[in-house]
Simulated scan of single mutants.
Amino acid sequence: MSTSYKDVLYEVRDGVVRITINRPEVYNAFRLQTLEELIDAFQQAGEEKSANVIVFAGAGDKAFCTGGDQKEHLSEDGLYGPRGTVGMPIEEFQTALRDVRKVTIAKVQGFAIGGGNVFATLCDLTIASEKATFGQVGPKVGSVDPGWGTAYLSRIVGEKKAREIWFLCRRYKAQEAFDMGLVNKVVPHEQLDAEVDQWCKEINEMSPTALTIAKRSFNADSENIRGIGFLGIQTVKHYYQTEESREGVRAFNEKRKPDFKKYAG
C-alpha cells in the first residue's frame, strides 16, 4: 500500500513522521479501511531513517479519535468487516502502534474517546490541548477493550482510577488526564503544534538506537498484557454476536439510552 491513503494522511517533515486519521466528519472514528491504512503507515514510519519520532493525530479541531465507527459496526451481521478477530484488525494495529521502533507522540486537540483513548494511552507520550477530553464509552455501547485499554491503562493511572474510567464512562478534561498520569503535558490550544514540534526537536537530537533500546525495555515490562488482550478479544468476539452488545450499538445510532437489563442472564 502506498502513502496515498483515503482515511489517513502521511507526511515526513523536519525529521518527523506525521500520521493523521483524516475522518473529521465522524470525529475521526475508525473503520476497517482506517485501521488497514494505519497499520501500513506505522510500518512504513518504522523504516523512516530520517526520523526519531512519529506524531499521531486526528484531522480537524474537534477530535483525535472517538473509537470505532458505530455505523460501520452495524454491518456484516453486527461486526465491522472481514478482518481480525472481531471483524477488523484492532489487535494488529495496536501491535503496530506499540512495537514501532520510533518514539510515538499522541497529539490530542479534542476528543480522545473509546478506542481513541486506547490509542493515546498506547503512544509513548501524549501532549494535549487544554480543550482535549479523554474517556471510555465501551460499556455504554456494548463494547470493551480487554487488554491494552484496561490492564495497561491501570499501569498508567492506577487500578482504582482505571476501574472508574471503565465502570462509569465519564469524560475527563485535559488537566484531569494530566493529574492522573494519562497525559505528559497540557498546553493552551493555540500552542499545541509548537509544543509538539519542540518535543520532536529534542527527541530528534537523541541516538535513535538508544531510544529504541529504551522503548523495547519499557515495553518488555508489560509484554504479558499482549497475551491478556489476545485472550480477551476472543471473548469480545462472542460478546459482539449477542443481542446485549447489539443493543448498545443500536441505541447509540438511534440516539437513545440502551436497555441492557432485558438481556441480563
Rank of each mutant, 00 (worst) to 15 (best):
R226S: 03
M180A: 12
M1C: 06
Q136H: 14
V16W: 00
S50Y: 00
K161S: 01
Y5K: 05
E190W: 15
D145I: 07
V144M: 02
I213P: 12
I39V: 14
W199K: 04
R98E: 07
R170Y: 15
G68V: 13
N28F: 08
Y239C: 03
G114A: 11
F64P: 04
K237M: 12
G110R: 11
E37K: 11
Y172P: 08
I165K: 11
T242C: 02
L122H: 00
Y240T: 07
L153R: 05
I213Q: 15
W166K: 08
N219S: 03
H189F: 15
P24Y: 10
D259F: 10
S75Y: 15
G158C: 10
V103L: 06
F64G: 02
G115S: 11
F64Q: 03
E72M: 09
R170F: 15
D179H: 02
S217D: 01
N52H: 04
R83G: 14
K6W: 03
I233F: 05
K237Y: 14
I90L: 13
E48V: 09
A41E: 03
I39G: 15
G158A: 08
G115N: 11
S217T: 08
V157K: 05
G147S: 12
S222R: 12
E25Y: 14
G149W: 13
F119H: 04
T66I: 12
V236E: 09
Q234K: 07
G158W: 14
E223C: 08
P82V: 00
R98I: 01
A59T: 00
E72V: 06
V183D: 04
R163E: 02
I127E: 06
R101H: 13
K255S: 15
E164G: 10
V17Q: 07
D259H: 09
G227R: 13
A120N: 09
G46P: 14
T3E: 09
P258V: 04
A174P: 04
A194N: 09
V196L: 03
A51K: 03
G149V: 05
F30E: 06
